[in-house]
Amino acid sequence: MTKVYPWGDTRRYNSYSGYFKREFGGRVQKLTIDAGFTCPNRDGTVGLGGCTYCNNDAFNPSYCTPQKSITQQIEEGIEFHAVRYRRADRYLAYFQAYSNTYAPLEKLRALYSEALSHPKIIGLVIGTRPDCVDEAKLDYFQQLNSKYYIALEYGVESCYNRTLQLINRGHTFEQSVWAINETSKRGIRVGAHFIFGLPGETQEQMLAEADIISKLPLHTVKFHQLQIIKGTIMEQQYTTNPEWFMLFSMDEYFNFLADFIERLNPNFVIERFTGEAPPRYLAVPPWGNLRTDQLMIAFENVLEKRDTWQGRLFENKV
């Protein structure tokens, strides 16, 4: 008999695609938008140079550039995705590049209103930093959330302040906890992004993060293996001090992930397990020519072989 897991389907983790099927009855496609934001650790507010691993060009789609209007990026994004996802007829405007709440509220209202005025856009997904929101902005998103699908995604990256300092994030884990709690209590969907393999962290420390974040009121999570991207400060650090880094092989990473999600809150929707950057941007060779969907199949095979699933060892200690 096929096992059905607590989130309502037969996949061994609480998948993003499964969540959207339950929520909307079909596929909803995110359209990436670059609205020309920057970050406080780039412009000198809390630091300079940005995160040591960051090169936004490595993940922005070709149609996505701040020289184009929001509407133009949406139209070109729909056309871009139409070939592969012909079933999608509803879209979320995904403000991804840099920190998309790092501006006065008046500017945010204008940008988000333009996106929501498009007839095929049903909501917003907004990537930002925990130190780039305040109560006024969150109150505004709460108002939007009464009419549209609204989700805020925070780049948390690590639960350890020493690591956050090393990668020049410019904020603390405590600030992340505040932003997540304040967002959630307003009824807004809240996500968090984490990177595994950051310099100085052991596998034991990374594994312990499953217990730490499982106590937070998160709706979605994204996980990403560390990749050394060309043109970044981290590439220079890796060249000079490779011993600082523990880069996973694919087998090592998938077995670590299996250990991790066994301890993870089963209510969390897992949006992504791996990061994917074009090979031309990678300073260290990738795992091969496998795409994200192929990597997902490989990981699910690991879960099946181990007969494990998300939350199998989770203990609700909240």
Score class of each variant (00 low, 15 high):
residue 8 G to I: 05
residue 9 D to R: 10
residue 17 S to D: 12
residue 19 Y to C: 06
residue 20 F to H: 13
residue 22 R to P: 00
residue 22 R to G: 10
residue 29 Q to G: 00
residue 32 T to S: 15
residue 34 D to Q: 03
residue 39 C to T: 11
residue 50 G to F: 08
residue 50 G to L: 05
residue 71 T to Y: 02
residue 85 Y to W: 15
residue 87 R to N: 12
residue 91 Y to R: 01
residue 94 Y to C: 00
residue 96 Q to P: 06
residue 96 Q to E: 06
residue 97 A to D: 08
residue 98 Y to G: 00
residue 99 S to C: 05
residue 102 Y to P: 09
residue 105 L to C: 12
residue 105 L to N: 12
residue 108 L to F: 04
residue 110 A to M: 06
residue 114 E to L: 03
residue 118 H to D: 01
residue 119 P to S: 13
residue 119 P to L: 04
residue 125 V to G: 00
residue 131 D to H: 06
residue 144 L to H: 06
residue 147 K to R: 15
residue 157 E to Y: 03
residue 165 Q to G: 12
residue 166 L to K: 15
residue 171 H to L: 10
residue 172 T to L: 14
residue 174 E to K: 15
residue 186 R to D: 01
residue 191 G to I: 00
residue 195 I to T: 05
residue 199 P to E: 12
residue 206 M to E: 11
residue 212 I to P: 07
residue 214 S to T: 13
residue 217 P to F: 10
residue 217 P to T: 11
residue 224 H to T: 08
residue 233 I to A: 10
residue 246 M to L: 10
residue 248 F to Q: 04
residue 251 D to C: 01
residue 252 E to I: 02
residue 257 L to P: 08
residue 260 F to A: 05
residue 262 E to L: 08
residue 263 R to Y: 02
residue 264 L to P: 02
residue 265 N to W: 08
residue 265 N to L: 02
residue 267 N to C: 03
residue 276 E to K: 11
residue 279 P to R: 13
residue 282 L to N: 09
residue 282 L to E: 10
residue 288 G to V: 10
residue 294 Q to N: 05
residue 296 M to P: 00
residue 298 A to M: 14
residue 301 N to C: 12
residue 303 L to K: 05
residue 306 R to N: 09
residue 312 R to C: 02
residue 316 N to D: 15
